[in-house]
């Protein structure tokens, strides 16, 4: 972990269309090659990992809700400059409390190059529920199994390879506090972004009746926005009656993400104001 905390040179990439959306969310991506988001349940050590990677001092605390705003920082790995975004912790992407919306909107509309889902090794079941949901939205996912030291203390053995196999995305065991495993984690992130690792996210199908309804909607969505990466997830959200997704659909915001064109009126950008210190 020696090469991650360098000061970053500046060079703009205003023409990179993938970054326009992020620019609108109040994130300056000009100086960075890649954007990585940190998602996960509350209290899994996202902010700790963020601090370890960026050398910044985002406050951490052992209670759910410590991070309610988004924090950003940068680091460098293998000559690539990464922008890291620390999102508020969420139990799921389904309910619509304010902090969950911040996280959900970012993963969906911000289109980060990769999303690291930070999990607590001592309560995997609960954490994997969120991993499965994030994998519905994007296939650029790396799972970080954090708090391995705690797991050891509690006499738990976690087999990261079994997780990788089952989930279809890399799962790396780390201890954010000491930095153990972080190099491997970043390697996996780079590989996923560069396509050296092709992920095959596991999809949960639900009841046959539900599956049938989803299958009816997916082609319609794909027809409206050809090449959309997460039509299945959108179909599920539409069936669920997710107001935010419905709005994105009828305002054409979704289609625009796909064609990656600049839009002037992204209303939700205002909501995501970046507040540094808390």
């Amino acid at each position: 972990m020696t090469n991650t905390k360098t000061i970053l040179p500046t060079e703009h990439c205003e023409t990179c269309p993938a970054f326009t959306q992020l620019e609108q969310m109040g994130i300056k991506v000009g100086d960075f090659d890649r954007v990585v988001a940190l998602a996960g349940n509350p209290n899994t050590g996202k902010s700790t990992l963020f601090n370890t990677l960026t050398g910044l001092k985002q406050h951490t605390g052992n209670w759910p809700g410590k991070t309610v705003t988004r924090a950003e920082g940068g680091f460098e790995f293998n000559k690539m400059r990464y922008k890291l975004v620390d999102l508020p912790g969420t139990y799921s992407l389904l309910s619509a409390s304010q902090d969950e919306e911040v996280a959900r909107d970012f993963i969906l509309f911000g289109q980060p190059s990769c999303t690291i889902v930070v999990c607590d090794a001592t309560s995997l079941e609960r954490n994997l529920n969120l991993v499965l949901q994030v994998m519905e939205i994007t296939e650029h996912v790396v799972v970080a199994i954090n708090l391995m030291d705690e797991a050891k203390r509690k006499g738990l053995e976690v087999d990261a390879r079994s997780l990788s196999r089952d989930l279809g995305v890399p799962a790396i065991a780390i201890t954010a506090r000491t930095g153990d495993g972080i190099h491997t984690l970043l390697g996996a992130v780079a590989d996923v972004i560069e396509g050296n690792i092709v992920t095959k996210p596991l999809r949960v199908h639900g009841t046959p009746e539900f599956q049938k309804a989803v299958n009816e909607l997916v082609p319609m969505i794909e027809q409206m926005a050809p090449g959309i990466p997460n039509a299945r997830w959108l179909a599920i959200r539409l069936l669920d009656g997710d107001a935010r997704v419905q709005k994105a659909l009828s305002t054409g915001e979704l289609g625009d993400i796909v064609s990656r064109q600049q839009r002037a009126d992204v209303q939700f950008s205002a909501k995501m104001s970046v507040e540094g210190r808390q």
Binding site: Y91, L94, S95, A96, S97, R126, N129
Partner: peptide, 11 residues
């Protein structure tokens, strides 16, 4: 509504 989802999300 919201409460039901919260319950479910918490497992």
């Amino acid at each position: 509504g919201f409460t039901r989802r919260r319950f479910l999300d918490l497992g």
